[in-house]
Design a protein around this nucleic acid. Sequence first.
RNA 1: CGGGGCGUGGCGCAGUCCGGUAGCGCGCAGCGUUUGGGACGCUGAGGCCGGAGGUUCGAAUCCUCUCGCCCCGACCA
Length: 474
Amino acid sequence: MAERITPRSTDHSQWYLDVIREAGLADYGPVRGTMVIRPYGYAIWERIQQGLDGMFKATGHQNAYFPMFIPMSFLEKEKQHVEGFAPELAVVTIGGGKTLEEPLVVRPTSETIINHMFSTWIQSYRDLPLLINQWCNVVRWELRTRPFLRTLEFLWQEGHTAHATAEEAQEETLRMLEVYRSFAHDEAAVPVVAGRKTEREKFAGADASYTIEALLGDGKALQSGTSHNLGQNFARAFHTQYLDTNNTLQHVWQTSWGLSTRFIGAIILTHGDDSGLRLPPRLAPIQVVIVPIYRDDAGKAAVMAAVDELRAALGTSVRLHVDDRDERPGFKFTEWEIKGVPLRIEIGPRDVEQGVVTVARRDDGSKTTVPRADLPGRIGALLDAVQDGLYAQASAFVADNTHAADDEASFTAALARGGFVRVLWAGGSEDEAAIQEAHGATIRCLPFEQPDAPGKCFYTGKETSTVALFARAY
RNA sequence: CGGGGCGUGGCGCAGUCCGGUAGCGCGCAGCGUUUGGGACGCUGAGGCCGGAGGUUCGAAUCCUCUCGCCCCGACCA
């Protein structure tokens, strides 16, 4: 049997594409740079949606939906915004066979159209804060695409809020970044570094941008979720104003924050191995798969009786799938490993005879024997163990691939090893641009966790205590 | 936008240099044997060779034009 998944060490990029294909996550669409998310991949997205949506609701947000078509003139109202997005806009110029009066932009993000509506909804300080989230698709005409990581169209959620004060907006910005951080950590078992973006890297139209940055298996960083403090930039452009308690007209203070199907790419690239996908149990569409093993009809009856009993005992406590297809066991083992199912339970004649089941863990490949009657009581702990195992492996990887540098020579050396490079930083945007030109690396963020150990900037030599994380990025 | 690769049954490819009845593996369907780490046998279905022109008695193959996709690099969630 030919190997269907290229080993990571041979060609990491090819490995990534092989896993997506073999695990049935996605297919290429007929148009360059587009992707079809297949049911198994979409099920992961649904898990992500469910988890995040609950967290948004718990923090007081409501879902709504805004149109995909945005008048071109809206984009042009905020200078930084249009400059940032102009190169990657898809624009509709014909509708119903007629050239349109005004071209329509297919939303690359919805700040403008949402402000247009907010400006009509918000009159008074009593209307604030306004906390809205939208689940939708957006389009950015990228040149270089990769499934999940960068496609012309992708799915995401975008939160948009309006507040009475700058302080409230800043609190909201950081609150939602923390939602992303804890989601990545607790649900996806993806370790991330939370921090602030530099001026150069921030969102077009924001006062400040914050990010969670993951470090993926090939040593490159991935911006996995972002939260922006928009200040009053869009409020001024769209006259989004309210009357305060002194009957004075004020511009609102705003935030926006987003997490996309790119996050599925982060999961694949954080946890995957040469056998395929490895999914964190909390996000896995199928947490446990049962593979019955038998030789003949009589054996099958005995095994399936045990399977049915176990299925009934587990009930709805886990997302369970029984693979009763007419295929050989080895085939099924391999297939479910490719799909990254956290736990596989094998039940064969020997297990039935001894009243046990064989449990295989996807995080470490181990196989153990568990009395069948004990399994329902232990399944939760087993899933937690896989979740923890994946997180431990991922965070050890980040630790092993984060290096400090204190001058350009050690910076170059650290970058060559891949991963995050921690430096003291006092440079400006021009310095950052020069470093990107020379080394292909950018500042991923200025981490919130700052050790407060003053020293010299590795690049400019100026005194500073600011730590920056550099990396090559997707 | 630069560099490279590729378009031939559902998928992966050979055939193209050197024109002559379109082939292989996987997958798929049926039957049988199998089943504790990607099984095997037999039978079968399925392709106007990306598209358009041209050369030729004859084009997957040669010529011209064109469309598309993938990978790598610069820009980007």
